[in-house]
Design a binder for these strands. Structure first.
Lengths: 141, 141
DNA sequence: AGGGTGTCGTTGAAATTCGAACTAACAGGA
DNA sequence: TCCTGTTAGTTCGAATTTCAACGACACCCT
């Protein structure tokens, strides 16, 4: 359980650092940043609400809330889904893309400084492998 | 950044699993469980509020709130600090200890099933080492 | 003693989270 | 076509978290 304790503590501390940086730099939550980042990684910068919620691992209600906040800021836009009238796309706006590009370097820097830079290359590959395995296992059940 | 993504996703998924188990099993938050667990790991089952907050990595206000909740349930007791009139001890009650002992096996099982069991012994030591390093670095700054 | 500075824990307001209930719309079969 | 069950997204209420401000006390230095 030592591993679990350390993992937990590192998670919490990292979360705090990241949150602090994003808040100071653009007034965004880490959750909001993750939404933008996930959208930017798609081909057409948009995703169905449900899929987006699954991807960033947040409840549907939380995503509804956050997308509304991001929409108020003009960083994201809601679009109807032609093939399914129930569906809604969350789509990254140009401004949202610019915001993300502006924000990303600082975010990456924080993550590197507090986690990545302490790791040897072997550590890094091990970490990736371990976490990916855990993620895959939990996603599938 | 692949490592970061995987780490983040695994964290969120694990948090959800753990939260779900604790909620179902005793109506406790993960944060509340962490408080109980930390207290139980001390010699006399009590800790100053500030130190407890630092240990479980939560804001002072959040800890005040959670200790009040735990106190309502009789799992924790507030005690005056003789050497510092400002100070307050959070002390684990016998009932709190029993609750924790009742709860721990299920908690450990969830963590094992979703994280630990996927790891080789080498992975486990690597994970511990990596996370401890990150934790230490962030605690010290 | 006395005053300035810092620390302790609590409080209040605002933001965010979740699960549950809800509405609307799809899908498949009788 | 109509029923039934499932899925999408939103809304609602309760719980939790954070930051900032506060009052009380401690510590130090003169």
């Amino acid at each position: 359980m030592a591993a679990w304790q350390a993992f937990l503590n590192a998670s919490h501390l990292l979360e705090r650092r990241v949150e602090e940086q994003l808040r100071a730099d653009a007034g965004l939550t880490h959750g909001q940043y993750e939404v933008l980042a996930r959208l930017s990684a798609t081909a057409d910068r948009r995703l169905r609400m449900s899929e987006l919620a699954r991807d960033v691992i947040v409840s549907k209600s939380a995503l509804t809330y956050q997308v509304s906040r991001l929409e108020e800021r003009g960083l994201v836009r809601r679009t109807n889904c032609p093939s399914d009238d129930r569906g809604v796309f969350a789509e990254l706006t140009d401004e949202g893309m610019r915001c993300l590009e502006h924000l990303a370097p600082g975010h990456v820097a924080v993550v590197r400084a507090n986690l990545i830079d302490h790791l040897t290359p072997d550590d890094l590959t091990a970490l990736t492998r371990i976490m990916s395995k855990a993620e895959a296992s939990m996603r599938s059940t």
